[in-house]
C-alpha cells in the first residue's frame, strides 16, 4: 500500500512539474503523439506542435528532432507545415512551409511558398528557399519572388546571396550578389538599378551591374551592358560592348 501511494505520488508530482516550464527547459507539446527512432536518432512529433524555450517559440504541424546520443542533445529541428519561429531575444521571425534549424551552426533554412525571415532591420521573402547563418552573417535567397528589404535598400532577384554585418546593433549588407535571368532589381535611395547580375562590396562601396543594365535616377535613365555605381559619391557610369549602344534618357521635371 505504501509503495503504491509513493508510485501514484511520483506520477502526479512529475505531471504537475511539467505543466509550467522552468528557465533553461525546453517544452514541446503535440496533439497526436511522438515517435522515437533510436537507431535513426530522431523523434517525430505530430500535429499542432509547439516548442517553447528560453530563446524561441516554434509552431508547426509536424516536427522532426534529430539528436546525438540522448533525446535532449538536439542538433537539428526540422519543422513541417505552417511553420512559425519567433525569437524575442534575437528579434527574429521566420515563416514557411518547412524550416530547418541547425543549432550548432545557428543556421536556419526556410523553404516553400511565401517564406519570410525578418529581424529588426531586414525583411527577406521568397517562394523558394531562405538560408541564414547567424554566426557568419551569410545569407542566401533562392527561387521566385525572392527579395530583401531594409530601410535603405530593396533587392529583388531569383538568386540573392551575401553577407550581413552587425555594426552598432544594426544589420547592414557587407557583400551582395544578385542574379536573375529575367532581370534583377535594386533600389537604393533615389536610384533604381536593373541588370541580370548585380554585385555589391561594402569595402569599395561599388555596385557593379552586368547585362541588360538600366540605371534610373530622378533626372535620367541610362541603358547599357555594364554599369558601376559608387554609393559613397552617388555617381554612376554605364558602358556598352558597342559604345554606340549606350542610351541616355534625360528627364527634366522643370520643363
Amino acid at each position: 500500500m505504501k509503495s503504491k501511494l509513493i508510485f501514484i505520488f511520483l506520477v502526479l508530482s512529475l505531471n504537475n512539474s511539467l505543466y509550467s516550464r522552468e528557465i533553461g527547459q525546453t517544452e514541446i507539446t503535440a496533439e497526436n503523439g511522438v515517435e522515437v527512432f533510436q537507431d535513426e536518432k530522431y523523434y517525430l512529433i505530430k500535429q499542432n506542435v509547439k516548442i517553447v524555450s528560453d530563446d524561441f517559440t516554434l509552431n508547426a504541424d509536424e516536427v522532426k528532432i534529430f539528436f546525438r546520443d540522448d533525446l535532449y542533445d538536439i542538433k537539428i529541428i526540422n519543422a513541417f507545415g505552417n511553420v512559425i519561429l519567433i525569437s524575442e531575444t534575437n528579434l527574429i521571425k521566420a515563416e514557411g512551409d518547412e524550416l530547418l534549424f541547425y543549432l550548432d551552426d545557428e543556421k536556419l533554412n526556410i523553404l516553400g511558398n511565401n517564406s519570410i525571415f525578418s529581424n529588426e532591420d531586414i525583411i527577406i521573402k521568397s517562394n523558394g528557399k531562405i538560408i541564414i547563418e547567424n554566426s557568419s552573417g551569410k545569407f542566401e535567397i533562392l527561387g521566385k519572388k525572392s527579395s530583401l528589404e531594409s530601410k535603405e535598400i530593396f533587392i529583388k532577384g531569383n538568386l540573392i546571396n551575401g553577407k550581413m554585418n552587425k555594426l552598432s546593433n544594426k544589420n547592414s549588407i557587407k557583400e551582395l550578389y544578385v542574379n536573375d535571368d529575367n532581370i534583377a532589381y535594386i533600389k537604393n535611395n533615389e536610384i533604381e538599378m536593373f541588370a541580370n547580375i548585380i554585385k555589391y562590396d561594402d569595402q569599395s562601396s561599388i555596385i557593379e551591374l552586368e547585362n541588360n543594365v538600366k540605371i534610373k535616377s530622378k533626372s535620367e535613365t541610362i541603358i547599357g551592358d555594364y554599369g558601376i555605381l559608387d554609393t559613397k559619391k552617388n555617381s554612376y557610369k554605364v558602358r556598352s560592348k558597342d559604345t554606340n549602344k549606350v542610351k541616355v534618357v534625360i528627364t527634366n521635371n522643370n520643363e
Partner: peptide
C-alpha cells in the same frame, strides 16, 4: 522504436 500516443508533452 517507441511511439507515444495522444496529447503529449516533452520536457527537456
Amino acid at each position: 522504436k517507441i511511439e507515444f500516443y495522444g496529447k503529449s508533452k516533452i520536457t527537456i
